[in-house]
Design a protein around this nucleic acid. Structure first.
Lengths: 342, 342
DNA sequence: GTGAAAGCGCTAACAT
DNA sequence: ATGTTAGCGCTTTCAC
């Protein structure tokens, strides 16, 4: 090849051969020195290091990857980079991976569940493993994908039939139950649940919590309103919420809660006096709303860090261990209070 | 090599040789077919495609990258994945790159300016170009790094001495000036500026706007208070702000403004009645604070998209064009109003 | 139009 | 301890 330029390096990036020539040794020796193999005479090693230094040489990760069979890269596949929840995961993952000298590739499926599979499979070929955040994918499809992607760590949902796939998630059911109990203890008996995407695994868990709660508390009425997962969805739900007799609203997540809060404020509805509102996730902004948002805290950064740990084990062919399920901490803040007579 | 497993592929991933054998043709022919070269007999092509299909073959990106000299990957280097501003950039970039079949690598320097250079250089070897978001790096260091990283697109700051580096940024000076004018027109004559990191390029631009404004308006007093760039910084600045006689606060960014808002609310200080507060950036949450935050809108997603476009041109050895400087739109919302007599 | 062979930059047997 | 050599999986001359 004429090769005007090599991948990942500007024209003229020195190769191992350049170093070898300059140090007057073989390629193998350079390779050994660069990889810290002890079996090379110190005098040679010194020459090699000097030559490498002078040429500003560092081995091509590409070539190494090809021969070593590993890229030192993992990828994280998310449905929507716009969602603050994923930011935390990404950050935790990036930090963890970085500490171990791993790089991270991001793949945003832009909410398209259909493309997600293709994207994941394609991305998989460029790295050593996938951290999959795919709350919406149907269970069957997920199972097939898990096998194809191996090694893979699943975040924010359980692995269903797959017992081998490591999972790092939150107990959405317990979290929602905690929120419901909190509202109940405050005296609320009529509530609204603003539901997220029906496809979403975590929404299913929330619904399960609702069912369980209603079974335990016969004197409570909870109406489920289809809503969504974003600000705008919560904002748009305000009228529907106000049309009910509910004294408290359980939003699918903090985003929805904040959107709702915003719309309520515009309508002059005071929170928590006229209506209690609780969110879910405890995104960084939640404590800074006015009043601060009562919510169930999911430690997203830790989710990411732990996802990395599991991935790390997988990469080293160690057992990944039990599913890790964080129990959300109920953060009682300013948007919830006992109901006042309407 | 015994090679139990190749990079980016599970054990037994088919290679081009497998396909060639199955189709009864040479490697070269398979390569041609897979790459859509027209110069191969249709009957052979059909056989090859069938074989590839049956084996579920797709070419190793790694091997291709090595020989082709390109990885079809770009990296984005950011100082802090936790900052919402970067999320937008990342998203825009990811979408743009994805459309052109490029992948994106993220590198988070975790605020460490010293490691940033090393991280960037290391990351550079794994991709075809770098999108650099480095608001704090000193100009001299930046120039050196730019040369080493080439091709590189710079986001959210100007390229200083480098005339060849494409730049995508916002006009922070004009944005801040717009905010100051808005407050001035509302009648504010005593203000506080909550400054960000003094090292940061965009903070310097804001300070320049302040200077220019004060030169034009002799009757206005603006006190600059060192603050920071996060919620907590704004929150913690509340007392210092209240100790001044200012009727309006210009926060370094929305995060700071929101933190301040939160602390003010706790202290019973009403906004905008007792104090006007304006932010900068227009992060997604800004319009949902109570009251909604007056701010200067930086189109971060577009910044990311445009950064990709520039990168794309660079990768194709086209001139990247003029620096792209977005002028922030002043979003007048609820946190600013004429001052009331104290 | 098709195949043989060289080579991308590197590592790891396998010699010596 | 060091060098020689055979690949990793692919693309692309270069002959036919």
């Amino acid at each position: 090849m004429p090769s005007p330029e090599r991948a990942g390096q500007r024209a003229g990036q020195p190769t191992i051969a350049d170093v070898a020539a300059r140090a007057g040794v073989s390629l193998a020796t350079v390779s050994r020195v660069m990889n810290g193999k002890r079996s090379v005479d110190e005098s040679l090693a010194v020459r090699v290091r000097a030559a490498a230094e002078e040429l500003n040489y560092s081995a091509s990760p590409l070539a190494r990857s090809l021969v070593l069979g590993k890229t030192n890269t993992v990828a994280v596949v998310v449905p929507d980079l716009g969602n603050p929840t994923f930011h935390g995961v990404l950050r935790g993952l990036s930090h963890g991976a970085g500490e171990q000298g791993y790089h991270v590739l991001i793949a945003d499926s832009a909410e398209s569940v259909t493309d997600e599979r293709i994207l994941a499979v394609e991305t998989r070929r460029r790295c050593d493993g996938i951290v999959l955040v795919s709350p919406r994918m149907a269970e069957d499809d997920l199972q097939a994908l898990l096998a194809e992607l191996d090694p893979v760590v699943l975040v924010s949902r359980d692995a269903g039939a797959s017992t081998t796939t490591p999972v790092v998630t939150a107990d959405y059911e317990a979290g929602l139950r905690g929120l419901l109990d909190l509202l109940f203890d405050d005296g609320h008996r009529s509530m609204v649940f603003l539901s997220g995407n029906p496809q979403s695994a975590s929404n299913v868990r929330r619904l399960a919590a609702l069912d369980g709660f209603l079974r335990d508390r016969a004197d409570v009425a909870i109406e489920t309103l289809p809503c969504g997962v974003n600000f705008a969805d919560g904002y748009d739900a305000a009228d529907a919420v106000l049309a009910t007799a509910a004294t408290a609203v359980v939003a699918f997540n903090d985003l929805v809660a904040m959107g709702l809060l915003s719309a309520l404020s515009e309508r002059g509805v005071t929170v928590p006096q006229q209506l209690s509102v609780v969110g879910f996730d405890d995104i960084p902004f939640a404590r800074y709303t006015t009043p601060p948002l009562t919510t169930a805290a999911v430690p997203v950064t830790e989710l990411g860090e732990q996802a990395w740990r599991r991935m790390w084990r997988l990469l080293n062919r160690e057992p990944a261990g039990e599913p890790l399920v964080f129990r959300p901490a109920i953060e009682r803040r300013g948007t919830s209070a006992p109901p006042s007579p309407r």
